[in-house]
Design a protein around this nucleic acid. Structure first.
Lengths: 252, 252
DNA sequence: TTTGACCTTGACGCTGCGTCAACTTCTAGC
DNA sequence: GCTAGAAGTTGACGCAGCGTCAAGGTCAAA
């Protein structure tokens, strides 16, 4: 089975100009070129084009796509990678559907949509954000750490986290100052809690970056509504942030 | 909750430049602009941005997106449309996953992948193709016609179609000529069968376009592997095409 | 043999941003 | 209150990825 440039373009939903562009660019050569110069596309070209179009829709540039395709020695691996990328994309879209549904339902109920859920719509970047802040290795390590725990251990860690949150909420409600002894004791507990996660600067003993991280974590409570929600309201989140900032300044 | 331009950009996975571009373009204005000229984005802006980014990924241009958003009077309808678009997108991706899986399995089994399944990967354009060939109205009418039938009627029509296909296959196997009486009788039956679908030129009595359509349908049996597969092999599809072409030339 | 549809190779143009540059404004720590 | 550095602003220029002619060759059907 073989197609002319127009036939393939029509089925792929692009123009023949695009196919010529890819040819010129060295990204997708026709399977066969007639003596008259006509381009004919066969099986391999169709599969390759599908992969190219997927990556283009993910926002990749042509040079990046060429690189990916060039690195693939095995055709099977390439197709498997393609499937994996598609599945990831599908999951992302389903996440977005849930996100928009929530926004719609909140709107109909007359309440404000929760920002954390709304933001989940495009949070494929959250991971990137974490990585750029604390490094790729930190992300990998702490990820492995979490998945390396038993279910029982995971539950225990979650429980400890929730206890900490509850303590923060109680302190915030008590109306004490973020620099008070009680708040600072909680901050110390918070830092110890953080240091249990390997791969983070606190666990590694890097003082400079530890301070930056503790402050950064504090900021997250205010900036990132997913955390703000945990602490009941904005005031609580601000309290946690201030306490952590004070702790980082005075005791680290 | 309110974000600065960078905060929103980071979470959306774009740059602040893009947000400024959208503002300048009149596509997404900040919820509030400080006395200092700073842009601040709130709830509405976030939801709108999500919609914009979705449409961008679907390949729409900024003017087209602006038009869509401008037409939406009701915010609820907009969100519902967004969900519908996302679901369609998800279905398309799942279709593609099946398509690529098939290609991979065929490759592993050492057989040729079926082109119809491969092409299903990007066949959101098939509908467009049909429309551009026979017109929007024709598509609408025949679509309504099909969905207006009872389940029993649909089964009956499908049965008639399969009988026709079986007759074609038998004729092709018999090794007769496409211009023979038997083949031409079948062609006539095929045309009658086509004319049952309202909205097509044959049903409307438009002779010129009827001939074009019958020929076009004939070509589809060879060009479009989904039909070729129905007729068992390429030779069968060629037989059907030649018979239909001959019929259109001599008897219409 | 002609007609019309489809192919080819340039070449120029547009859209959607990326990327300085030059300047102002805000925030944190002394 | 002052200063450094991060983040904000408005131009302006540049580039990638095609769209869109223009000026021809090729092919299939009548």
């Amino acid at each position: 089975m073989e197609w002319t440039i127009q036939e393939l373009a029509a089925r792929a939903g692009i123009t023949s100009r695009t196919l010529r562009h890819y040819d010129r660019f060295g990204l997708l050569a026709p399977s066969r070129v007639g003596a008259n110069g006509y381009r004919y596309y066969g099986l391999g070209a169709v599969a390759r084009l599908q992969r190219i179009l997927l990556m283009r829709r993910l926002g990749m540039g042509l040079p990046a796509i060429a690189e990916v395709l060039a690195e693939e020695v095995d055709e099977h691996d390439g197709l498997r990678a393609h499937i994996a990328a598609l599945e990831e994309e599908r999951d992302r879209i389903e996440q977005q559907i849930r996100s928009v549904r929530h926004t719609l339902e909140a709107l109909q109920a007359g309440v404000e949509p929760r920002m954390d859920v709304m933001l989940a719509g495009f949070n494929d970047r959250y991971k990137d954000e974490v990585i750029s802040r604390w490094g790729e290795r930190a992300f990998q390590v702490s990820n492995d750490w979490w998945h390396g725990k038993t279910l029982e251990q995971q539950r225990a860690w979650k429980q400890a986290s929730e206890d900490l949150v509850a303590a923060w909420v109680a302190a915030a409600r008590a109306g004490i100052s973020p620099t008070s002894a009680r708040a600072q004791t909680l901050a110390a507990r918070h830092v110890r809690w953080l240091s249990e996660i390997p791969g983070t600067p606190t666990a590694d003993g890097d003082r400079e970056r530890s301070i930056a991280m503790v402050k950064g974590v504090g900021d997250m409570f205010v900036d990132d509504p997913r955390f703000a929600a945990m602490y009941e309201d904005a005031a609580g989140a601000v309290f946690v942030r201030d306490a952590l900032h004070a702790y980082a300044r005075t005791r680290m």
